[in-house]
């Protein structure tokens, strides 16, 4: 049990490190959003599972944290991606951009 918990925690730490590296090294904003979200979600997942193996009677609260992260993290990055799309310059190497016509006149006033 101890070993399983340790392995999960180290994997979680590695994925957190990957999230930080992805944020640092990816070339444009949307790539950074993708790398950050995916790596930190799996990192939190595996770290929390490791903690559950070490303390089995905490599993209810940890389950709540996992549900919250899996729901909230992608929603946050989607909202952020839309904001970045609407506000800033697009990356220069886009192949297709089928959203141009959709969000063109999306104002409320």
């Amino acid at each position: 049990m101890e070993i399983v918990s340790t392995v999960f925690m180290i994997i979680g730490g590695l994925f957190y490190l990957l999230g930080g590296l992805g944020i640092l090294r990816m070339p444009d904003t949307f790539d950074r959003i993708q790398a950050g979200t995916k790596a930190t979600t799996l990192g939190a997942f595996s770290l929390l599972i490791g903690i559950t193996f070490a303390h089995p009677d905490w599993w209810l609260k940890i389950l709540l944290i996992i549900i919250f992260i899996v729901l909230a993290n992608p929603i946050g990055s989607s909202v952020l991606a839309k904001a970045a799309y609407l506000s800033f310059e697009k990356p220069s190497n886009l192949v297709t951009d089928e959203l141009e016509d959709v969000f063109g006149g999306d104002t409320n006033d």
């Binding site: 549900i67 919250f68 909230a72 929603i75 839309k82 006033d109």
Partner: peptide, 21 residues
């Protein structure tokens, strides 16, 4: 007050699920 851009679909639905938590 109307916000400048109408909210994202995912935010609209997800907020109802997260509101309970």
């Amino acid at each position: 007050m109307a916000l400048n851009y109408s909210p994202n679909f995912m935010l609209r639905i997800g907020s109802r699920a997260l509101f309970g938590i």
